[in-house]
Nucleic acid binder design. Structure first.
Length: 586
RNA sequence: GGGGUCGUAGUUAAGUUGGUUAUAACGCCGGCCUGUCACGCCGGAGGGCGUGGGUUCAAGUCCCAUCGGCCCCGCCA
């Protein structure tokens, strides 16, 4: 047995192997010991197959088989045969056959695993502590296999289209703007630090200056920010940059990539080009720049109808520059009075001070605010909302930002509650014409919406001084099912334009030179027009595998507090290590 | 930085208004069993309730603090 080589994967055997002698190696998934005959479900990465130990296989084999426990590592030699009549297991891919064992080797024993691999709801701290066992589960293995195929399809597509993969450094320079950097102390330069890249942004632009023309990389990126269900401190981007291109060129090249990926991973044919929305339109209709367009329930502005109504709260908001908007949940009788009231707490998360609702009846509303409106106002709202009996309308009155965020998120919340989302749908949307910068209340200055190297729409340049918030960017995001899966832009390749942008962002010449001097220098040596995009590989994989957490598509993820429960990273280091780096813990 | 939620045998959970030796299922261990596939039957072991304080005659049950998992807001160019 020790000299035998594996001939097949367990999960790949079928009727066509009937009569063949095979050698299998894998884990004992489950055993059913009848005293006489013993069945073991042998598992490897391809699946399960039932192996049978008959007493007449020989005394050694049979007594050895009695010792088998969960997750023992086995090598078996035996003959594939079609199962006896009526013994098929239709729940099993290999359920029509079984392997009658003639030789067995227990290659390794196993402690009893801390959890069952069949159980779906094991607490995540246990799963993450024993991640190597968690990764034995078929569900997670399936996700990682798919992730690998996605990456392979990506590389194939770019290689076929003349792109070159270039690796960029992990140890780089800390730059202002953007996310918090992960820092790495330098031993040689006391008191100085490298930063792990938030993305290879500047390097890929420099590669365009170098003349590579088409670059891609499947790159790890690091951001020291708080985590979410779809955010990890280290994540993977499909990073792309091209020279001598317009937004249209980049978007259509990327649509081609997605078409290949979805063909390879899901066997689906995307129809191109993908739909587009401008940023302004997305905010107006959906309240978010990453709208989920798998369902309707669009936001409607009713400010003009109610600004002079008898409802003081609405008129006051309108008078002070706010807006009143509404969404309509169709036939929402599933929502109880209690549900309606508790949604107030939900929109409060986004800063809304209240949430009004109205249940539409044949001739009136069931609503706490019904009494404030004249009959024609009620009618006009109903018309504007196209409301029918049984619908429920939700109103938020506040600043435009708070109204958009509250209703945008309420819309999603209601769609989930009312089961309005088709989980099998793929709804892509490009979001275009982003503002180049937005005013940051915390920093009291304009900050880049994307990054400071994004090209403005050139005809908007004069606004840079008069009204910076109105300048549009040559930037685009791609949204899939309400998740931002990628984004990019045409970059600035002209030093004067770059200076103008820096100055609008209140980054001084001196500071710019200090932080990005190398880029500014490079722009003076014949930088071609260029632009690119990056996709979040983890998020793409999440959507394709229908994973609810980014942790389910990453082999060794961190917890929400950015720790690894398996290795116990981060950890303390010795005083000697600190001294070598001239570091002191404060 | 903030809000919410959870933490009880290996695992998943139940534990009433605080009240004798803390339940169940699965798993585990032993025995029996030649066709099961969540095998079956009989028997058994296993935790003191995340941790530390406090209230009380009495604390998984109440209070405070603390640690950890998850979700969200802020943050994420």
């Amino acid at each position: 047995m020790t000299k035998d080589k594996r001939t097949h994967y367990c999960g790949n055997l079928d009727i066509s192997h009937n009569g063949q002698e095979v050698v299998l190696m894998g884990w004992a998934h489950r055993r059913r010991d009848h005293g006489g005959v013993i069945f073991v479900d042998l598992r490897d990465r391809e699946g399960l197959v039932q192996v049978v130990f008959n007493p007449d296989a020989g005394e050694n084999v049979h007594s050895e088989a009695h010792k088998i426990r969960s997750e023992y590592v086995l090598a078996v030699k035996g003959k594939v045969r079609i199962r006896p009549d009526g013994m098929n297991n239709t729940a099993l891919k290999t359920g029509e056959i079984e392997v009658v064992v003639s030789d067995l080797e227990i290659m390794n024993e196993s402690k009893t695993p801390p959890f069952s691999f069949d159980d779906e709801d094991i607490s995540e701290n246990i799963r993450l502590k024993y991640r190597y066992l968690d990764l034995r589960r078929p569900m997670i293995q399936k996700n990682l296999f798919l992730r690998s195929r996605l990456a392979a399809a990506t590389r194939r597509y770019f290689e076929e289209n003349g792109f070159i993969e270039v690796e960029t450094p992990f140890l780089g320079k800390s730059t202002p703007e953007g996310a918090r950097d992960y820092l790495v102390p330098s031993r040689i330069y006391k008191g100085m630090f490298y930063a792990l890249p938030q993305s290879p942004q500047l390097f890929k632009q420099l590669l365009m200056v170098s003349g590579f023309d088409r670059y891609y990389q499947i790159a790890k990126c690091f951001r020291d920010e708080d985590l979410r269900a779809d955010r990890q401190p280290e994540f993977t981007q499909i990073d792309v940059e091209m020279s001598f291109v317009t937004e249209e060129d980049i978007m259509s090249m990327m649509e081609g990539l997605l078409k290949s990926i979805f063909k390879v991973c899901l066997g689906k044919d995307l129809s191109l080009p993908l739909p587009r929305l401008t940023y302004a339109e997305a905010i107006n209709r959906y309240g978010k720049d990453n709208p989920d367009v798998r369902f309707g329930m669009e936001i409607v502005d009713i400010t003009p109808i109610v600004k002079n109504s008898g409802f003081k709260l609405f008129t006051e908001v309108a008078a002070s520059g706010g807006v009143i908007k509404a969404i309509k949940a169709e036939q929402a009788s599933a929502l109880s009075r209690k549900d309606l009231d508790s949604l107030k707490d939900f929109v409060a998360i986004y800063g809304a001070k209240g949430l009004a609702w109205a249940k539409i009846n044949a001739n009136d509303w069931t609503s706490p605010i019904f009494k404030f409106f004249k009959p024609e106002e009620v009618e006009n709202i109903g018309k504007k909302m196209n409301a029918k009996e049984g619908d429920i309308i939700f109103f938020v009155a506040d600043t435009p930002k708070i109204v958009s965020e509250s209703l945008g998120n309420l819309r999603l919340n209601l769609a989930k509650k009312l089961n309005m989302i088709d989980a099998n749908m793929l709804a892509f949307t490009w979001i275009t014409e982003f503002p180049l910068m937005e005013f940051s209340e915390t920093e009291k200055r304009f900050v880049s919406t994307h990054h400071p190297f994004t090209s403005p729409v050139l005809k908007d340049l004069p606004l840079m001084i008069t009204d910076p918030g109105k300048v549009r960017a040559k930037a685009y995001d791609l949204v899939l099912n309400g998740s931002e899966i990628g984004g990019g832009s045409i970059r600035i390749h002209n030093k004067d334009v770059q200076s103008q942008v820096f100055s609008a962002l209140r980054i001084s010449d001196e500071d710019a030179k200090l932080k990005f001097g190398f880029l500014l220098d490079a722009l003076e040596y014949g930088a071609p027009p260029h632009g690119g995009l990056a996709f979040g590989l983890d998020r793409l994989t999440m959507i394709i595998t229908k994973a609810e957490s980014i942790r389910d598509v990453i082999a060794f993820p961190k917890t929400q507090k950015a720790a690894c429960l398996m290795t116990d990273a981060p950890n303390k280091v010795s005083i000697e290590q600190l001294m070598e780096l001239s570091l002191k813990i404060v």
